[in-house]
Design a protein around this nucleic acid. Structure first.
Lengths: 138, 138
DNA sequence: TACAATATTGCAACTTAATTGCATTGATAT
DNA sequence: ATATCAATGCAATTAAGTTGCAATATTGTA
């Protein structure tokens, strides 16, 4: 199934509307191997046809709400997004380069799931972030 | 030793100059039990006497450079700072509330140090971030 | 102690990331 | 087909952080 069709299928499973903007953004995220910033996604989409900045922000937020995408925290100021639910499809560590600030998914490194917060906290998900120099900058 | 004197002693060990701004900021960080944003530090300092925004940014960067403080990454757009070296004094997990976005140091939870990135990467330090609802929001 | 060298500060302007309000457009249930 | 309301597009605004440069303050040396 091509990314466009996959995106459509995923969006139709939600209670939201199937719109061109949502299909385009999710379709774009589905083919990425690394988390992308708002700006990177905007550029990729603009190659075909530009999308309004605010619409892109809102679509990304909506995708995260629907668990069709998730945010990855990094040191840089811009949020990064990747398709897939944070709970299930993304339980692996990330590497952030302190020099070029690219973020790499370390698919082979699972996040320790036995680590739990003290009583009173309700744990939703965990992130494990390694920092240093990526192969290119090293 | 009071925080002011501690701050002075720490700053004098560096090769930088001992300035009022540096002493005030480090002194403020030393008494905090949780990482604070630029804005929070600015407000706390302003209670006594306001400090220029840019000076505060530069002092914080300098403190991080000197390993007298370190940044903690969170989902929120604002960086958070805490006194102490990232390598030695801060090898524990953090909890970020997805509702009120406060960041809590989980002093009891050590960051797994045996987890290493693939060959080619140079690891500097690791962060372990738990997300969900804090006791207040839960 | 005074002085020169230069690190640090303060201010103004600017960049980048993200948000808000509102009128318009478009998806979908009937 | 069309009414309803979710979603979009645009303009303006807020928030976080940065840059350049002149003024000020710290510190080593005389």
């Amino acid at each position: 199934m091509n990314p466009d069709a996959s995106a459509r299928a995923l969006i139709m499973k939600t209670d939201g509307r199937l719109t061109a903007a949502r299909v385009r953004v999710l379709s774009c995220l589905l083919v990425q191997t690394q988390p992308c910033t708002h700006h990177e996604i905007e550029s990729m989409l603009a190659a075909e046809e530009p999308m309004d900045r605010v619409t892109l922000y809102r679509v990304l937020d909506w995708l995260v709400e629907q668990s069709l995408a998730h945010k990855v925290s990094g040191e840089g100021q811009a949020s990064r997004f990747r398709s897939g639910d944070a709970q299930t499809s993304h339980q692996h560590a990330h590497f952030e380069c302190t020099s070029c600030s690219t973020l790499t998914c370390l698919e082979g490194i699972a996040i320790p799931s036995h680590i739990l917060p003290p009583a009173g906290f309700h744990l939703d998900r965990s992130e494990f972030l390694l920092k240093g120099l990526c192969p290119a900058c090293n």
